Amino acid sequence: MSEQPDQQTKKPFLYVVVCASGIADDVGKLITAAQEAHWDVGVIATPQGLGFIDTTAVEAQTGYPIRSAWRSPGDPRPLPPADAIAVAPATFNTINKWAAGISDTLAVGILCEAYGFGIPTAVLPYLNSAQAAHPAYRQSLDRLREMGVLIGGYEPHQPKAGGGAAHFRWEEALELLAPKVSRRL
């Protein structure tokens, strides 16, 4: 009997990149949906995003440590390689830095490299309409689309109106990725 895992039974691995947003603590909804769709999941948080999620609950749900900083040389990789990436919720800041190639955090560094590796990536922006009105935001979305990034359809909410958490569809990331991932696996 072989001791190697059967490649047919290996689940695809999804990285969920979480940014600092008021709805980030609901990331468990995306993790649950992914696990129900037979994904293994690991979470990468922006440094500020860590303060918006229940790290203990997320690590218990995924079975992996949350990553937010680069590992030291020689340290083991705590997550398997990604088969796909979902960025949710994605902030104005992260979207613009990613599109500009500003790799100043582990999360954005992973996103910048994903393009070069050809890893299917979906982004679910979550921002207000005043931020979305800035010309850099539309230019960033255009650049990400040119890179093959799949962009969710969330409509920015009104500023200082309590956000639009009720309209944020976490599972949209999986819907966007499904056609791309089925071709890779």
Results as ranks from 00 to 15, higher is better:
Q4G: 09
Q7L: 15
K10R: 00
K10N: 00
L14P: 03
L14H: 05
Y15W: 09
Y15F: 09
V17C: 08
A20N: 14
D25A: 13
D26I: 10
E36M: 11
W39D: 04
W39Q: 06
Q48M: 15
Q48I: 05
G49N: 15
G49A: 13
G49E: 06
L50Y: 07
L50G: 14
L50D: 07
F52T: 11
I53M: 10
D54P: 05
E59D: 04
E59I: 05
Y64K: 13
D75C: 03
P76A: 01
R77D: 11
P80D: 03
A82P: 08
D83G: 04
I85H: 03
A86E: 03
A86S: 06
P89Y: 07
N93F: 10
N93R: 15
G101I: 01
T105Q: 14
L106N: 10
A107R: 12
A107L: 13
C112N: 15
C112E: 12
E113P: 01
E113Q: 07
A114G: 13
G116M: 06
F117T: 00
G118D: 08
I119P: 00
P120G: 03
P125R: 09
Y126R: 05
L127I: 10
L127S: 12
N128V: 09
A130D: 13
Q131K: 00
Q131I: 08
A132S: 09
R138Y: 01
L141D: 05
L141N: 04
D142A: 14
D142E: 13
L144C: 07
R145W: 05
R145A: 10
E146M: 04
E146Y: 02
M147I: 01
G148K: 04
L150K: 03
I151D: 08
G153Y: 09
G153E: 15
Y154G: 12
E155R: 11
P156Q: 04
K160N: 05
A161K: 06
G162I: 01
G162N: 03
F168C: 10
E172D: 12
E172Q: 14
L174F: 07
L174R: 09
L176D: 01
S182G: 07
L185G: 15
